[in-house]
């Protein structure tokens, strides 16, 4: 068995007295105490009053949500790749065909139901990564609460509410089709 011999430091007699270390320790704690009291130490955010909202980076991985494009088209085409990749199987999609009289009939497919069970979601972001349509993004929404299991399931409406409109993405369905 591999062993590592750790050499025990040989203490001087005054070190053995314990008091110098004690006084040193008190010195350290006093320094921290004073710094905290004078506000020189950064302490925890006071959460419900202060929120993360403004401090979160754009790439923060909060609740996954669906987005629409500039023309309010729902970007999701219900390819179900996110449902497939989702490690905790939080996503359930029911696809449907877009009616032929719809403005976006050429896209052919969209989700009828898109549900993300936020109890299951682990915010891994694989859905965003796998999405070939740039339709699902992890947004800054992080305080997800509910009083029942059913409330914790985000349906399509809620997902678009969180996701909102997203511009500057590839709009492949709009071009020349």
């Amino acid at each position: 068995m591999a062993t590592i011999v750790v050499k025990r430091p040989k203490l001087k007699w005054w070190e053995k007295l314990y008091l110098p270390a004690l006084i040193g320790g008190i010195g350290v704690t006093i320094r921290h105490f004073v710094r905290t009291l004078t506000g020189r130490t950064k302490v925890t955010m006071q959460y419900p009053e202060e929120k993360w909202n403004d401090h979160l980076p754009e790439w923060y991985r909060g609740a996954p949500a669906l987005v629409t494009d500039e023309q309010d088209r729902e970007r999701c085409v219900a390819c179900q790749l996110c449902e497939f990749i989702c490690p905790p199987r939080a996503i359930t999609i029911t696809p449907e065909e877009i009616a032929s009289d719809d403005k976006w009939a050429k896209v052919e497919k969209r989700p009828r139901e898109f549900e993300i069970d936020m109890i299951r979601c682990i915010y891994c972001g694989l859905c965003e990564e796998v999405c070939p349509e740039q339709a699902i993004f992890l947004r800054q929404e992080y305080a997800i609460t509910g009083t029942s299991r059913a409330e914790m399931v985000h349906d399509k409406k809620k997902l678009y509410e969180i996701g909102g409109k997203r511009v500057g993405l590839v709009n492949k369905w709009n071009a020349l089709k």
Binding site: A78, Q80, L81, E83, F84, P95, E96, E108, K109
Partner: peptide, 9 residues
């Protein structure tokens, strides 16, 4: 079968 289920499922 159109749009019913992705085949990988």
């Amino acid at each position: 079968f159109r749009f019913q289920m992705r085949v990988w499922f």
